[in-house]
Design a protein around this nucleic acid. Structure first.
Length: 571
RNA sequence: CGGGGCGUAGCGCAGCCUGGUUAGCGCGCCUGCCUUGGGAGCAGGAGGUCGGAGGUUCGAAUCCUCUCGCCCCGACCA
């Protein structure tokens, strides 16, 4: 391929619409162009990078025993009504009607379609397990598309679905997929973590998110620097502060705290630390009002709280001041667990505290030296708080780190949610009709490209990992009008092609500076320069984009050296 | 959906507040000369329904009303 004939519209300046680095660079380097908010055309380089990721995904999925299919993007409403998601899914599901006024939607995901496929075509345990995937454009009518390829409305995704006869089988399939995902993201050259994700009511560790570590990530994750522990905020756990058992429990003491309502204000007034106070928050859960107890310096993790209550976090919210007063007879700021008539949910950490301060359930008063179980008993107790960077790893005791991540993959054991809803069953070895045990496995292919750029770039442009770079080598002919140089450049270009090394020849009639800068910008891993030094002493320069290392070579050595460098980089 | 910002040449922007000839600048693009190892220089040139509609006015990029689009923060995100 010749640069002069390719559509690579590079830009000198940052487009005003882009905020994050991957978005800016994808636009500037001529990889993508926006059609409308959240929808992008992949230009030749962008598409080539996408194809590289797709190919890695294909190879590893096939290796793990999955089969590629391709399902329709337009899906009939009937299926979604059957699963119940037509009502539940919300505005993200783009709905429309055909000429007969039949309802349809653009597929944001394919559980319904694939489950329908299975129920129509898989009838016996002898055909299980079955693992199907596709690589396809998904459409989600995002409330707010942003950051270019990071969160589009239209994006390329690999989605896979497994069907197993037994729970153990499904778990084995899950583990296989987890392994495959590790291989995929490693091959893509990404620094990532598989994090324990909240799997809602299903329980167990059967949901993992694969997070690429990058500043611009939209999610916060908790990672242990010393061991392999990693989890997202909804799921993360940590060591409890050890109970100081030597301390003697003191008598409760009522203290006047006029106008002191906020945790920090009360603590300053009483000259204590926030960790020596237990705050009482009030939530409205469906129609019930409940109190939540938490150490003063901790924060509630809504998902954990919802899980312990056995409800969805959508059915739960903080109460306002009026609701608090109506339910407790005390203005907010002076609430405490003692004498409260509503359900009490305590964070497990409260149990390890002693002689702490709480509200007195009376305006302008707090209580000192309160102790759980002696002075009050919670209805439920458990882990309901957010992990902080001061907490220690449950597995190894090291201090945990909070970091940002980009979710590029998500695997999930679904169970029988869809197979039951759609009556997708098979006959087991006893002849009994049984619903499939399902799993689903997603990878945001286009997002992987963006994430890779977030992780691999410098001030000059993209530094693509070799495995997913659109091409491996860029040959610069610095003097297209110089016959000798041009011949040498052409020869190298042809020889690389003969070796099946993907290459672009920059044959444009441009000044060297433009070519060097474009080369850095588009981020091809190896740059071969044929110019003055070739005329002078017959040498050619090979430069590695990732670290800037350069090699001065004879034309005869160039091809084999580059081939070796590529091989090394891919290993 | 709530809040904020922006739509003027392919890209980045000025002009608008305070209405007044032919709407401007940088980059890019085309032609020629020159230059050729890190986005050169000179000369000439093409390219605009000033997002759209309506209104006010002798006169609107500029003022008013409506509308469409894009970006950011938040809410939302199987």
């Amino acid at each position: 391929m010749r640069f002069s004939q390719l559509l690579i519209p590079t830009l000198k300046e940052d487009p005003s619409e882009a905020e994050v680095i991957s978005h800016k660079l994808l636009l500037r380097a001529g990889y993508i162009r926006k059609l409308t908010s959240g929808s992008y055309t992949y230009l030749p380089l962008g598409l080539a990078a996408i194809r590289k990721v797709e190919q890695i995904v294909r190879e590893e999925m096939n290796l793990a025993g999955a089969q590629e299919i391709l399902m329709p993007m337009v899906q009939p409403a009937d299926l979604w009504q059957e699963s119940g998601r037509w009502q539940v899914y919300g505005k993200e599901l783009l709905r429309f009607q055909d000429r007969h006024n039949r309802d349809f939607c653009l597929g944001p995901t394919h559980e319904e379609v694939v489950t329908d496929l299975a129920r129509m075509n898989i009838h016996s345990y002898k055909h299980l397990p079955m693992n199907l995937y596709q690589i396809q454009t998904k459409y989600r009518d995002e409330a707010r598309p942003r950051f270019g390829l990071m969160r589009g409305r239209e994006f390329i995704m690999k989605d896979g679905y497994s069907f197993d006869a037994t729970d153990q089988g499904a778990e084995l399939t899950y583990e296989k997929m987890k392994t495959a995902y590790h291989r995929i993201f490693n091959r893509c050259g990404l620094s990532f973590r598989a994090v324990d994700a909240d799997s809602g009511s299903i329980g167990g560790s059967f949901s993992h998110e694969f997070m690429v570590l990058a500043e611009t990530g939209e999610d916060t994750i908790v990672v242990c620097p010393s061991c392999s522990y990693a989890a997202n905020m909804e799921k993360a756990t940590c060591q409890m502060s050890s109970a100081s058992d030597a301390i003697t429990l003191k008598e409760i003491e009522k203290v006047e705290t006029p106008g002191k309502r906020k945790v920090q204000v009360v603590c300053d007034f009483l000259n204590i630390k926030a960790s020596e106070l237990v705050k009482t928050l009030v939530y409205v859960v469906k129609d019930e009002v409940i109190a939540v107890l938490l150490r003063g310096d901790h924060e509630v993790e809504d998902i954990k709280l919802a899980n312990i209550l056995g409800i969805s976090d959508e059915d739960m919210r903080l109460a306002d001041d009026k609701e608090i007063f109506d339910a407790t007879g005390t203005p907010s700021g002076y609430l405490g667990p003692i004498g409260l008539k509503i359900r009490l949910v305590a964070d497990q950490e409260v149990a390890s505290m002693s002689n702490f301060v709480v509200g007195a359930n009376e305006k302008n008063f707090h209580l000192r030296n309160v102790n759980m179980n002696r002075d009050f008993t919670p209805t439920i107790s458990g882990d309901i708080r957010k992990v902080t960077s001061r907490d220690r790893c449950l597995a190894c005791g090291s201090e945990l780190e909070l970091t940002k991540g980009i979710e590029v993959g998500h695997i999930f054991k679904l169970g029988t949610k869809y197979s039951t809803a759609l009556k997708a069953t098979f006959l087991d070895d006893q002849g009994a009709e049984t619903p499939f045990i399902m799993g689903c496995y997603g990878i945001g292919v286009s997002r992987v490209v963006a994430a890779a750029i977030e992780q691999h770039h410098d001030k000059d442009g993209i530094k693509f990992p070799v495995a997913i770079a659109p091409v491996k080598v860029l040959v610069l002919n610095l003097s297209p009008k110089d016959l000798e140089i041009s011949q040498a450049a052409e020869e190298i270009y042809e020889n690389l092609r003969k070796e099946n090394i993907e290459v672009i020849l920059d044959d444009r009639d441009e000044r060297p500076g433009i070519k060097f800068n474009d080369a850095d910008l588009i981020g091809i891993p190896f740059r071969i320069t044929v110019g003055k030094s070739f005329s002078k002493d017959g040498t050619i320069e090979v430069r590695r984009r990732s670290d800037g290392e350069t090699f001065t070579l004879s034309p005869a050595d160039t091809i084999s050296t580059v081939a070796d460098l590529i091989k090394k980089a891919m290993a």
